[in-house]
Design a protein around this nucleic acid. Sequence first.
DNA 1: ATCCTACATTGGACTTTGTCTAAGTCAAGA
DNA 2: TCTTGACTTAGACAAAGTCCAATGTAGGAT
Lengths: 138, 138
Amino acid sequence: MSDLLERLRGRGWRLTAQRRVVAEVLDGDHVHYTADEVHAKAADLLPEISRATVYNTLGELVSLGEVLEVSTDGRAKRYDPNAHHAHQHLVCSRCGTIRDVHPAGDLLADLPTEERFGFQVSAVEVTYRGVCPNCATA
Amino acid sequence: MSDLLERLRGRGWRLTAQRRVVAEVLDGDHVHYTADEVHAKAADLLPEISRATVYNTLGELVSLGEVLEVSTDGRAKRYDPNAHHAHQHLVCSRCGTIRDVHPAGDLLADLPTEERFGFQVSAVEVTYRGVCPNCATA
DNA sequence: ATCCTACATTGGACTTTGTCTAAGTCAAGA
DNA sequence: TCTTGACTTAGACAAAGTCCAATGTAGGAT
């Protein structure tokens, strides 16, 4: 993730303690925090960070293509730092756990021309739903 | 949609003017209103209908499997009355227009066993994104 | 090393979307 | 037609997110 900070600095990003902390919180695999969760974790490292700054920073990271926004439950948006590896999501219907997954085949090609209504289709998001091992045994 | 009302009455639903109006608003193809839009349209037909009743009724229709909830933009949920025909959604990235579409192939089968992390996968939702003809020319 | 200033951060007010509750109303069976 | 439990209502409340004016500061300029 320190690459990230360098990359962004190259793009004219001003490097502040707040942005550093937000980037640090978003480091890892299968990370899908809400803005509030990011704020809470960031505040552990930098107590005076404000919610507005977390929202601003997340928004910038999304615009820059470094982080993806996912909304798997219609409630708070979640932020997925794994933007450079194409993937989809598998969500537990009971506990909400999210895993990154990689379906086979060309998902875009599955949509026939006559089902495109003249749209220029450029992307596809897939959410698989099921019950995770943990919830299945409980 | 009048079938719907009969069907629901058969299930013990009390038939009120408010519920009738909400069902009427949700009639049609490619309908994906937000709760507030449903409320506004319902209020044209029955001015004193309250927001709470619209939310209640939509929630009941979803529980009963008559209407689907879709959230294509992370903002307000939208309600899709086309619940009895499996379909996915194609969304315009500019104006937000939503069309119902029918991809080819078995979308669930595209997720390999080793990518299921032990989940019992039971459903899949797909959102295609692109630019609609209207926005492409504008 | 210090200064400058455009950009970043802050806290709080505000908006949007949705939920809850207590009191009043009414659909439909007896 | 009466009764009753389900339905509706208005408004308070909550969660998630946006906006703004005032303040602070990163990093280039000197």
